[in-house]
Structures are given as C-alpha cells and as structure tokens.
Design a protein around this nucleic acid. Structure first.
Length: 590
RNA sequence: GGAGUCUUAGCUCAAUUGGUUAGAGCGCCGCCCUGUCACGGCGGAGGUUGCGGGUUCGAGCCCCGUAGACUCCGCCA
C-alpha cells in the first residue's frame, strides 16, 4: 500500500492518527534545522515536517529532496504550532510528522517550472507529461471527463446505444482530405481514417438500432488552427423516426446536462432558433455571436432614391446597403481603420465607408452626400450617439453581409467586447442551403454533406435545377459565435439520394463504386432518420474558458501536425514500405 | 500556398538613437539558517542574442535569406 489519504484530505479531526501519503515534492523549505516539504498529489498539498531533534536520519534524507522527486511518507498527523496554520490550504491546520520516508523516484531538474509562468507551447508539448501536472491542465482533463460522462449518462438514459464504428474505413471524394492507410494484404489499395462515422451511423439506422451514439475519434488531413486538430472527438448521434424538433429537444437536454456537469451552470432551454437566411441578414454569419450587438441594419429604404451614387448604384443593381453601429468606437486608430478597410476589400467590397461621431459632429467624407432626411433616418434607425462609429457596406447582398459580419467580429475583438463574459448564448441555426456553387471547381457542393435531406417544400427546386434555392433540413448549434455541432435529417430514399448525387456531379459509376453500399441499403428498408454531431473538444474548450483546443487535449499536435513529444510523424523502415508495396517518390532536387 | 507577430541564460522577460564587459526575477550549484508555506541570507555557475550572409569604425537592435513557434486567410462536406 502506498497511501491512506490524498494530499488534500487530512484535517484537524485526523490529528493523532497515522497516515501514509505519496506524491511529488512540490517545494522544499529547508531551514537548516527543521525542513518543510509540501507534498503534492492530484488532489492537493499537505505539509510534511522533518525535525532533526526527533529523527536526525530522516531529516538528513529530507535535506537532499529536490523538486518533483516522487516520495512516500508515513507518520503521525499533528496540529501545527499555534499561529503557524496556513489558511490558504485546506490542510493548513495540520502537518504530517513522518517516521518513514521512501524515495520512490528522483527527478532531474525540470525543463520548465510547473507552478509559475506558462512557458512556450512547443516546450510544453515536448514535455507534455510535465505540463499535465499544472493544475490548469489537470482541471481541464477532469472537466473533459465529466463532460463525456454526462453525455454517456444522459444518452443512455434516453435509450441510446453506444456503438463503435470502424477506424479503418473507406475514402470518399467529398469533404476534407482523408488520412490514408495502405493495405498490406491487398497491395495498392487504401483504407481511409473516418472524417466522421457518417455513413456507418446511417447504416446502423437501416440496421434497426434506432438510437445510436458514439464518442468518436475523427480524422481530417487539413491545416490546423487553434480550434482544429487533425484528430479530434465528436459526440455523434443518430436516431430513426425523428423530426428536427425531436433532435432539438434531445440536444438541449444533453447540453444542459453537460454544462451542469462541466461548469455547474443551468442553461436556459429551449434555445432560440434562427434561419440561416436571417442569421446572414442580421449578423453576416451563420454562427452569430449575439452578445456583441451591432446588428446589420438594412438601409435600402433610406437610400432607395438617394443622390449618393455609391449607395444608389448598389441598390439599383439589386444589391443592398447595410450598416453596423460600433458603439463608442469612434476613437479607433488609423491602423485599426486601415485593417478594417483591407478586410472589407479582401471579402469583396470596393471599400469601407464609415462615420465617426465625435464632438457632436459626423466626421466622414461621405456625409456631405446625404440629405437631411437621410441623416435623420440614419440617426433613428442606428440609434446614433456621441462616440459611435457607423460602418457601411453597399454591394451585392451576399458581399454586404459577409463583409459587415467579418468586420463586426473583428471590431468586437478590437474592443474586447466579450472579455470576462460569463454569458452563454445558445442558438439553433436552421434551414441551411443544401448546395453551394464552387466557382473554382465549377460545380455544386454539399453545404453539409451529400446525405442531407432537402426540405420537402423545396423538392420541386431540385427537380427544376434551381440548386442554389434549395433549403436543407439541416441545423447547427451555436454558442457565443462558435459552432458546437451540426446535423440534419437524412435522405432515406434511394431515388432522392441519386438525384442529389447527380446534382453534385457524381457520375453513375462513381455513385455505384463509392456509395453503392448505402444506395443498396436504402432499397432494403431504410427508416427515416437524422442526427447531429458535436465537437467534444470545442464544447470542453468553451466550458473551460480556453482559447485553444490543445488546452483540453492530453497529447495534441502542434501547428504543423507534429507530436513534439513522440516526434511523430517519423520515417519508417524500408522493409515496412516494401511490405506495403510502397515506394517513396524521389524528392525533387533544386 | 499566402499574410502577420515572435525567437536574448534552464524558464519568464529587459537591454535608450546602432556604442563599454548583454542584465533582472525565478530555477540550478555551494555555504549558512529550527516554524516556514513564493521561507530567508551570502556567494557562484550559466549566453554562438535561432541559423547564414550583408551594411557599419561598431549590430541583440538596420537590411537580405533561412529555420522554428504561434495567430489568421485559403482549406476544414
């Protein structure tokens, strides 16, 4: 036996009893005579005191203890000398007076301190096992555990069955780049790691499971971001005989349970709902952060007959004129206004017009083109006040929304509008478009994925080839401007699925070779079904208040997909390649 | 693929306009210290300023290149 207690457990009531503790030497305070050790385990700290007059041999050993040595102590729990209690520690009233000290393992000097500043992330990742001893990391991983446990408990309670699906699966051309695994037994063929268990979960519905979930590892070979890793975890859910409302109610209950378990808060349900069209129109984003205010205000009525050519021209061409009011941001710097203008151009606007309201004056090169009526209309529509900054965009509707949406988010960052906010603003976004035209590839792509069901009232548009007008039975959950998850009601009829594949430009042959199994399944008794998937890492990140997904993963990869600790990816033996029937292409020499 | 920021001691950072021997805190090593809890005191070690080139009488600082880290755009159904 190594211990009888954790290091946060012993109290006044234990005084006089014997106890064994094991852990790491957090700090040593060596007074020459008496020596104090703060012993740390995952739960907390307990002070150990060595007195040479009571046990000279132990005190001599204790003198040689160093940071992060792993030790076990056994002895008597004693009251601290009156006046030396430490109110900062839960165990601050007592100390352990050992009669035995066992050094379980010596530690070299650590590459970085674990109890002060956070070092460079590459160093942390190189020595992740040391980094994980930092209380913040321990806390994050334990919150993650609570979140997954709450998820499992909740879904189990609702009759959902957790089923594992293959990691070695099949590559498909849609979506993200696949990680490929060469087959040794069938040379020249490859498995792909799943981007999501999408097809498997639908096939489980055809298999009569009715209610499935999985805490599923997913893999996408795309560039990384602070909230994106090549391997990540989804809470994956699918159910048969469900409507969107059934999914919404289930998810609201699940997220309430998760946030209760992970953060100790009650979130209000049901969540408000907003269509994609409305979100784009009012916020210029399909994942709006409503906490920021600054709604996109349509000014079409005001400037319909305006003599200001820039606005009038956009409206005459069937476009839009919109503005946002950035409260108290008239004081922005030149650098900031340059950045916003650059941003507007980058997203397709010709420029960015704005008005600064300072000292009761509207400062802007465009104000002189406005009539008094137009100014008054602006004032009342945008509730213009001293210190405000009004930003305009006039162009095609899509461009106006995109530009102002991006600028809105950037201004919020500049103004640090959400710093320290505890508010949790959950939102459903519904009625996403089914298809989006990709100009670069000159083809239609699925906005969600190719199995998403068109809304019944838009089916005629699919027949008519009005692909851009079709709305999907698809929905996202958004929290504070972050997409937590998304899903849809699926297609369960082979005919409809074939039509959507055709719209996506998947040839008959490819439909059979790539998706034949699922089309066949749909002909053999497929129930109506639908589901949703959540980014578990992102949920945990939000609950922990972290800015990076890496802070809630035990062993994440860096920006370039390297595991700095294990040095993967790495070269492999020639023999391994031979067995797989692979040969590396010669690197091009310059 | 593109853009930005950064890289100085083991860690976190500083170093005036380009100017003496590149400093501080923490950590580390040694000595001292019997009630501390970020213990304290004295002393010490520790630097190819990421790397390569250039400008200059002189470069941590300016210029070019390169590597790496992070953030963003593209990408991520």
């Amino acid at each position: 036996m190594y211990r009888t207690h954790h290091c946060n457990e012993l109290r006044k009531s234990d005084i006089g009893s014997n106890a064994m503790l094991a852990g790491w030497v957090h700090v040593r305070r060596d007074h020459g005579g008496v020596i104090f050790i703060d012993l740390r385990d995952r739960e907390g700290l307990t002070q150990i005191v060595f007195r040479p007059e009571e046990n000279a041999e132990l005190a001599a050993q204790a003198h040689h203890l160093r940071h992060e040595d792993v030790v076990q102590v056994e002895g008597k729990v004693a009251a601290r000398i009156p006046g030396t209690e430490n109110p900062k520690l839960p165990t601050g009233d007592i100390e352990l007076v050992p009669d035995q000290l066992t050094i379980l393992n010596r530690a070299d000097v650590l590459p970085f301190p674990i109890d002060t500043e956070t070092p460079n992330e590459d160093l942390r990742l190189s020595y992740r096992y040391v980094d994980l001893r930092r209380p913040q990391m321990t806390r994050n991983l334990r919150i993650r555990h609570k979140v997954t446990k709450a998820t499992r408990d909740f879904l189990d309670e609702k009759g959902f069955v957790e089923i594992e699906t293959p990691i070695l699966s099949k590559s498909t051309p849609e979506g993200a780049r696949d990680f490929l695994i060469p087959s040794r037994m069938i040379k020249g063929k490859f498995y792909a790691l799943p981007q999501a268990p999408q097809q498997y979960k639908q096939l489980l519905m055809v298999g009569g499971i009715e209610k499935y979930f999985q805490i599923a590892k997913c893999f996408r070979d795309e560039d990384l971001r602070s909230d994106r890793q090549p391997e990540f975890t989804q809470i994956d859910i699918e159910a048969s005989f469900v409507t969107p409302d059934d999914i919404f109610a289930l998810v609201e209950g699940m997220l309430a349970a998760v946030f209760r378990a992970g953060r100790g808060v009650e979130i209000p349900t049901p969540f408000p709902r907003m269509t994609y069209a409305q979100a784009m129109d009012e916020f210029g984003s399909d994942k709006p952060d409503r906490r920021l205010g600054m709604r996109l205000t349509d000014l079409g009525e005001i400037f319909r007959e305006s003599s200001f050519k820039m606005f009038r021209g956009a409206l005459d061409a069937g476009g839009a004129v919109k503005a946002i009011n950035a409260r108290a941001f008239a004081s922005l710097t030149i650098g900031q206004s340059d950045e916003l203008t650059e941003m507007a151009k980058h997203y397709g606007a010709k420029g960015l017009a704005f008005i600064k309201v300072e000292n009761g004056e509207w400062k802007s090169p465009i104000v002189k083109f406005f009539s008094e009526a137009e100014k008054e209309a602006l004032r009342s529509r945008l509730l213009v006040e001293e210190g405000d900054l009004i930003l305009f965009a006039a162009d095609k509707w899509e461009i106006v929304c995109e530009v102002l949406g991006r600028i809105r988010s950037r201004i919020a960052e500049m103004q640090q509008l959400t710093a320290g906010s505890e508010q949790l603003d959950f939102l459903w976004i519904t009625d996403f478009p089914l298809l989006a035209f990709d100009a670069a590839e000159n083809k239609w792509n699925a906005v969600h994925h190719p199995f998403t069901r068109p809304k019944a009232e838009d089916l005629a548009k699919l027949e008519a080839g009005e692909f851009g007008q079709i709305r999907a039975e698809a929905y996202d959950v958004v929290l504070n401007g972050v997409e937590l998850g998304g899903g849809s009601i699926r297609i369960h009829e082979p005919d409809l699925q074939t039509k959507v594949f055709a719209a996506l430009g998947v040839s008959e042959e490819d439909q059979q070779s790539l998706f034949g199994h699922i089309l066949r399944a749909f002909r053999l008794g497929a129930p109506p079904h639908g589901g949703i998937a959540f980014g578990l890492d992102r949920i945990v990140m939000m609950i922990c208040g972290e800015e990076s997904i890496r802070e809630v993963m035990a062993f994440p990869k860096n920006n370039r997909g390297l595991d700095l600790m294990s040095q993967s990816p790495s070269e492999v033996d020639q023999r391994q390649l031979r067995e797989l029937g692979l040969k590396l292409a010669e690197e091009k020499k310059l």
